[in-house]
Design a protein around this nucleic acid. Structure first.
Lengths: 219, 219
DNA sequence: CGGCATTGACTGAGCGTTCAGTCTAAGGTC
DNA sequence: GACCTTAGACTGAACGCTCAGTCAATGCCG
């Protein structure tokens, strides 16, 4: 809240930029779009951020930060390591349709493509990915400590599992006809339970609709 | 060869386009670049392909086709299913530095990002991904048939394993400081051997250099 | 008044696409 | 064989649009 209060215009524009990138893609995002959405003039956008590239890179960073903040927020509410892992998987596979995470997967595709050439974006991606890995690592460590998970090299698991989730994120983001959110979630959880040695079965019979998971309260 | 003989200019431009996309990214690729590299005028490029979008989409398709052709070519030479799987993993993780596959991983990142909005590119991606899955599926089926692999749901495995390899492809393409080609290859093979129940150990002590694998002849 | 926020109007570069042709080779005609 | 016609390959120049970034001017607040 403090950040938003101190620099309302700034975050407003970053939020607008995030949405525009999600809609039109990183290279297709125009400062006019961002300005329109934020209800200001294009010149003001340049006034705040020096250049378009800078704006978009910062928008990417902010978006990633928000994603992990949301993840931490949710994880904090869940007592078991297996539950926390499941929540991470659910977020990555977009099982629950969630406004906060709207467009985050699509953004990742642009993030990766852009990271190839743009050093600033590359830095964002590297931090973000290491953050992701560390999150998984920590969950595994906790699970091993509490006896939920049986011994496994947490580092190798984190490397492999984040790669797996990234791969599923691609399929889900692109709306692959074979690998939808439910299947990705299912397979990912099965792999995890097998590798980490904990019991897991699907919450319910497979649902057709893309509705939210009623298991967890939404408020 | 027949194709190249019939339409030399066409394939020449497609090849040029592939290189330009690999260098400057899909959105950054200019028809002038392609024309320059092919040694023709920009107008001729439009003369052959109706528009820039069409050109780039076809270049993507051709690139994917080449990749799978190369994969089949290599796989055909390898007698065991485990060996074939290893070769696929090696190609995906860019363990062997190979001219034919130059820039293919980087191209995938652009392919995914572009597939989000461009229907033509999306179609290419879907075909390509299903092709990949089917390749893995078939290798597993063969391995199970010959007794190399122990029983496993080949479909679920294919879905999960292609996702894993896609994820590693991202890391490798972006030159992640933590997950390099060797580590990706190593972890991927360990996962495969464990899941499919075959014996596998690293060919050699871990190498620092990014040199090619001397195990297989390059000719 | 003085500094900050904000804007509309403008510009200049970049780039896809078009067009009016030129050049070359093949084919037909006597 | 000499000449004309046709078609396809190919190009240089120009058109027109998009869009990031600039700038002088205005409003606003303390």
């Amino acid at each position: 809240m403090s950040v938003a209060d101190e620099e309302p215009r700034r975050v407003q524009m970053l939020e607008a930029a995030r949405q525009v990138i999600a809609e039109r893609g990183f290279p297709g995002a125009r400062i006019t779009d961002v300005a329109d959405r934020a209800g200001v003039s294009p010149a003001l956008v340049i006034y705040y951020f020096k250049s378009k590239d800078n704006l978009l890179a910062e928008a990417m960073r902010q978006s990633e930060d928000l994603w992990y903040a949301e993840m931490s927020r949710r994880a904090a509410k869940i007592p078991t390591a297996a539950g926390r892992l499941e929540e991470v998987v659910a977020m990555t596979c977009h099982v629950s349709s969630d406004v906060v995470l709207e467009g985050s997967l699509e953004l990742w595709l642009d993030l990766w493509a852009q990271a190839l050439r743009d050093p600033e974006v590359r830095a964002v991606r590297e931090e973000s990915d290491e953050h992701f890995r560390e999150t998984i690592r920590q969950i595994v460590r906790d699970g091993v400590a509490t006896g939920e998970f049986s011994g496994i090299d947490e580092d190798d698991f984190a490397v492999a599992y984040t790669a797996l989730l990234d791969g599923f994120a691609i399929q889900v983001a692109l709306g692959d006809p074979v690998v939808g959110p439910e299947r990705a979630f299912d397979v990912a959880m099965r792999v995890a339970s097998q590798q980490l040695g904990f019991a897991w079965e699907p919450r319910r019979a497979p649902r057709r609709s893309s509705g939210r998971l009623p298991t967890r309260a939404t408020s």
